[in-house]
Amino acid sequence: MVLGELEKQVLQYLWAHPDSDVKQVHSVLATQRGGGTLNTIQSTLDRLFKKGVLSRHKKGLAYYYQAKLDREHLIAKLIDNVTSDFISEGENSLIAAFSSISSDLDDSQLEELENLIKQQRKARG
């Protein structure tokens, strides 16, 4: 999923003001640099809706939009997407992680490793 700068601005507005229509979004974003025209905002909202990032319902003649995921959950989803290559295809990973994110070592095995490090540290003084 790729987000453009304007899409980010729209999302940020909707995170702060859920359930807004295109006029409300435009009234705020129009004052910002690169905020876009009413038509541009309408297309951006449609695009985000089609990408599955927004949900909408009709009130009278206008659609009211809200973000499906809050900021933190959207970031978590993107991290999952980026690291999913790492997880699902393992050896095909395009990322390099400090710790391999998935490990079959359970907590007790990791504790054993921890104890080993402590022992070795002690032995070396």
């Binding site: 978590a76 999952d80 690291t83 999913s84 790492f86 997880i87 699902s88 393992g90 050896e91 990973s93 400090f98 710790s99 391999s100 994110i101 998935s102 490990s103 079959d104 070592l105 359970d106 907590d107 095995q109 990791l110 490793l113």
Partner: peptide, 23 residues
């Protein structure tokens, strides 16, 4: 870090990549 990540196991779909790497 591996222990912290283990506490999120339910959120990640694990495939055990690099299982031996940490050790």
């Amino acid at each position: 870090v591996a222990k912290l990540q283990n506490s999120y196991k339910t959120d990640f779909s694990y495939c055990y990549f690099g299982s031996e790497h940490i050790a």
